[in-house]
Structures are given as C-alpha cells and as structure tokens.
C-alpha cells in the first residue's frame, strides 16, 4: 500500500511548520469544500427541469444533466418529484439522499463539528442504511407498498446520517494524504473556509 511503501522506502523528512499549517488548513477546509460540492450537485438536479422548460437557460444543458444523472438513477417519471412540468433529474429517493447529504453537511459545518471518537462510524453506517434497505426490500418483495413519503424519509435519513460519517473520515484522510505528500494549498483556495 502507498502509505506502507512510502514509509519503508523513504525516510520521511520533518516538514516545516508552514507545511504543517497547510495540512491543518486543508483538513479544516474539507467540510466546506464538500458543502460546495454537494450544493452544486443538488443545484444541477434542480436545474435540469428549469433548463428543459426553457426558462432562460439553453435546453441542451438540461438534456445533458438528464443524460448524466440517467446513468445513476432510473429516472422513472412516476417516482419523481416535478418542478413545473418536468421531473427533477433524479427520483424521489435519490433526491432525498442528495439533499439529505447537503443538509447534513450544512449542519456539520454550521455546528463547527470536529472528527470525534465518541461514536462508532460502523454503527453510524448501519443506522443510516437499515431503514432504506428495509424500505427497498419490503417494497420490491411486495411485503408493503412503498410511498413517496417512505422513499423521502428513508433516503433523507440516509443522506443526513451518512454525511456525519463521511465528512470526519474525509477530513482525516485529507490530513493523512497531505502529511504524506506534503500537499500545499493553492493560494486561490486559501479563503475557502469562510462560508
């Protein structure tokens, strides 16, 4: 593995304090970068029907968004939320997951949370996934009929909870990578942590 090989082949030289500061800064920017990424992703989902409706945007952008999201979602009309006359770029459950993740990220950033060992990430993943898995399995097997509310609730639950698992681990991962590769933050990203 990279980390292992890196250590065994090469003696890590002590880095200067400016590099250490850059590592800390990079780690602190990860939640905000994820927040921007999630916001752009969700904006694209909302933008597709607006573009196709021709509300001041080129139609081809909307079609490209529908095509792109079509690879990762079934886009069945009867299972989609409509914005005007056109459905969103993804179905109800996917929309709930992505907007839930955005909400979870906003909460994480707004509360100024830090990576913590007080809770188990393994259990967090399980708690996030189980309701959605039951909903999908129960609905597909015909045990009960899934409703838009159940899709919205279980998807949103998954998105919010998983954000609280992904962000701290991403912060940790970015910090470790920066330490190993002595990553320097480009100057244009230095103001990223201000929301």
């Amino acid at each position: 593995m990279l980390t292992h090989r890196f250590r065994s082949r090469k003696r890590i030289r002590p880095c200067h304090s400016s590099s250490a500061a850059a590592i800390v800064t990079l780690s602190s920017k990860i939640p905000v970068m994820l927040l921007y990424g999630a916001a752009i992703w969700c904006a694209a989902i909302l933008l597709a029907p607006v573009c196709v409706a021709g509300a001041g945007f080129p139609k081809v952008i909307g079609q490209a968004i529908y095509f792109s999201f079509g690879e990762i979602c079934h886009q069945i009309d009867s299972r989609s939320v409509y914005l005007g006359d056109y459905p969103l770029a993804v179905c109800v459950r996917c929309s709930a997951v992505y907007f839930g993740f955005l909400l979870g990220t906003i909460m994480y950033v707004a509360l100024g949370s830090k990576p913590s060992t007080r809770y188990s990430y393994r259990w967090l993943v399980i708690i996030a996934s189980v309701p959605m898995l039951f909903d999908v399995a129960g609905g597909t097997l015909g045990v009960y009929s899934m409703t838009d509310f159940s899709r919205l609730f279980t998807g949103g639950w998954f998105g919010i909870i998983i954000a609280w698992c992904v962000i701290p681990l991403a912060v940790d991962g970015a910090g470790q990578m920066a330490r190993l590769h002595r990553f320097q933050i480009p100057s244009r990203l230095r103001g990223f942590s201000r929301v």
Binding site: H4, R7, P115, T117, R122, L124, V166, L169, Q176
Partner: peptide
Amino acid sequence: VIGFALFRPKVDPFAGTISGTPI
C-alpha cells in the same frame, strides 16, 4: 470511506496511523 468505517480495526483513527505509529 464507508468501507473504512465498516471494516477498519477498532482503534482511534484520529490518533495517527492505524499501524500504531502515531504521526
């Protein structure tokens, strides 16, 4: 990241490296 959360050994991931060599 989800795989890491599920399968990582039970040690503090923020205490340095998991192999036991704190940074």
